[in-house]
């Protein structure tokens, strides 16, 4: 189960963080979750769910839909 993290970036910081699922550039807070031993950053919990349900399926395939 993931949890919210505040980027706490300095006002002059121009670095960018991308959601591991949808690819959105994340403004400030993000959802951090451990997936198969790897810590991933998501823009929201729903993207973690989508990642688990779709992207983790081999090749992104989900032909059972």
């Amino acid at each position: 189960m993931g949890h919210w993290i505040d980027k706490n970036a300095a006002w002059y910081d121009q670095s960018m963080t991308y959601c591991a699922c949808c690819g959105l550039v994340i403004p400030s807070g993000y959802w951090e979750a451990e997936v198969r031993g790897e810590v991933l950053i998501f823009c929201k919990p729903d993207c973690e769910r989508l990642y688990l349900e779709h992207r983790l399926v081999e090749g992104g395939e989900n032909e059972t839909a």
Binding site: M16, C22, G23, V25, L50
Partner: peptide, 15 residues
Amino acid sequence: IRLITNPGTVVNVRH
């Protein structure tokens, strides 16, 4: 409606 994209592609340009 939910999207999945990879940063660094033509559909999600990376800085």
